[in-house]
Amino acid sequence: MSVDHLLQTIPPLVVYLLTGLVIGLESLGIPLPGEIVLVSAALLSSRPEIDVHPLWVGVAATTGAIIGDSIGYAIGRRYGMPLFGWLGRRFPKHFGPGHVAVAERLFGRWGMGAVFFGRFIALLRIFAGPLAGALKMPYPKFLVANVLGGICWAGGTTAGVYYLGIVAETWLKRFSWVGLVVAVLGGLGVALWTRKRTRRMVREAEGTEPAAP
């Protein structure tokens, strides 16, 4: 059985539910690859032979992001900052003191903006809801930033990947694959730079690396 045939056997509803569930759990504070799942689902929707619609992928991702963040907010507001101490002892790679310090610094500087833009940053995506609740951000403000961020991130990512998939398929049929490789390498370069910068901020917050000027 070919890969294309195998993909065609996946019910669209399973794709939508899995996308919403994984993104919702990640938004709640569980470190899961929500962005990878969203990109994969959006790529599936760009294949005409697969009955997955990009609109419903975006709706599922947006719904999961908003609900997950709201549940994370409620948990953070209930248990406060000691929650992150408990998580840090059990998951130091994701909730260590440096991670919490960086996220708290960004929240203190940007407020609602940290919730909105946190949707686009891996570090803040799992912190935004619980940390906003722990810091007692008013829920109406959090909800506005949460909804807008979820719509822009989920909808924008779905649309961008969907159209990129269509263009890539056209390039592969009519032109050289070199352009696609360059585009993919460029995207990977930006992702790696962002990850490296985030890790450096965490090390600086932990005091294991001198602060950048």
Rank of each mutant, 00 (worst) to 15 (best):
M1S: 11
L18V: 15
L21I: 14
I23V: 07
I23Y: 02
E26S: 04
S27Y: 01
L28N: 06
G29L: 02
P33H: 10
P33C: 08
V39W: 04
A42L: 01
L44V: 05
I50H: 09
V52W: 04
P54K: 05
A61V: 02
T62L: 01
A65N: 05
A65K: 03
I66V: 15
I66C: 10
I71D: 08
G76D: 08
G76W: 01
G85R: 10
W86E: 15
W86G: 12
W86C: 09
G88D: 01
R90S: 09
K93M: 09
F95V: 08
P97Y: 06
G98K: 01
H99R: 15
V100R: 07
V102F: 03
R105A: 07
R109S: 09
W110Y: 14
M112W: 01
F116K: 02
F117A: 15
G118R: 00
A128V: 07
G129M: 02
P138V: 07
K141H: 08
L143Q: 12
V147Q: 08
G150V: 02
W153P: 06
G155R: 02
A159D: 11
G160A: 15
T170H: 13
K173D: 14
F175L: 15
S176L: 10
W177S: 14
W177F: 12
L185G: 10
E204S: 10
E204V: 13
E206W: 10
A212M: 06
P213N: 12
